[in-house]
């Protein structure tokens, strides 16, 4: 059949164009225009060593750190080699138990009133770097006490790590937990 030749050759040609030339061009231009983003938005220490990415959350559970959202990644929370959510259904008893336990852990630190949903419900990727400003606000007293510094000072750092809606209206306001905790350690 005369159409076998184009089938094979076009497959090869498009593998070269779309699988070789296209990603190579995009990589080249991306590195020229946005080198930091293309590499992974890494935060570096004074020696220039990468100590984390602003886009990838890390696990924190100590009283002196702000806690991120619960993470359901395999083995341990915020395992960046296994992104994913809990996939728990809304009526799953094990899920309701887990959320209840998280609420209790927060209450034990003196949190009262309505708990923001994001602080006790796991994120989609298990690596969500953000919490809502409300969730950060609930933790200010605990962190200030554990560090022996004033709540106002902690609140000021929280405000610095808060991003507003993008372009003024897109998405939700949010606090980057890793950036916030690094700033606190630097105080």
């Amino acid at each position: 059949m005369k159409d076998i030749k184009p089938a094979i050759l076009l497959f090869i040609i498009f593998s070269v164009i779309c699988g070789g030339i296209y990603p190579a061009v995009v990589t080249g231009v991306a590195y020229a225009l946005f080198p930091k983003q293309a590499a992974g938005s890494f935060i570096t220490d004074k020696a220039g060593k990468e100590i984390g990415s602003t886009l990838i959350g890390q696990p924190f559970s100590g009283a002196k750190y702000f806690w991120p959202r619960p993470s359901a990644t395999a083995d341990f929370g915020y395992n960046s080699m296994a992104s994913g959510g809990s996939n728990s259904g809304p009526t799953n008893p094990a899920y309701l138990q887990a959320v209840g336990d998280r609420v209790k852990a927060l209450r034990d630190t003196g949190v009262t009133g309505l708990v923001p949903a994001d602080l006790v419900q796991a994120s989609a990727n298990g690596l969500d770097p953000h919490i809502t400003p409300e969730s950060a606000g609930l933790q200010v007293d605990r962190v200030a006490k554990a560090r022996g510094i004033s709540g106002d000072l902690v609140m000021k750092v929280v405000e610095q790590a808060t991003e507003g809606r993008q372009l003024g209206f897109l998405g939700e306001p949010r606090v980057n937990v890793l950036v916030l905790n690094l700033e606190l350690d630097r105080l």
């Binding site: 809304p90 309701l96 609420v103 309505l114 994001d118 419900q121 953000h130």
Partner: peptide, 18 residues
């Protein structure tokens, strides 16, 4: 069922804050 536990009643399980 989640709201009963003292939580703001929106569903954030499996969603991203941003």
């Amino acid at each position: 069922l989640v709201a009963k536990l003292g939580i703001q009643s929106i569903n954030m399980e499996g969603k991203e804050v941003r």
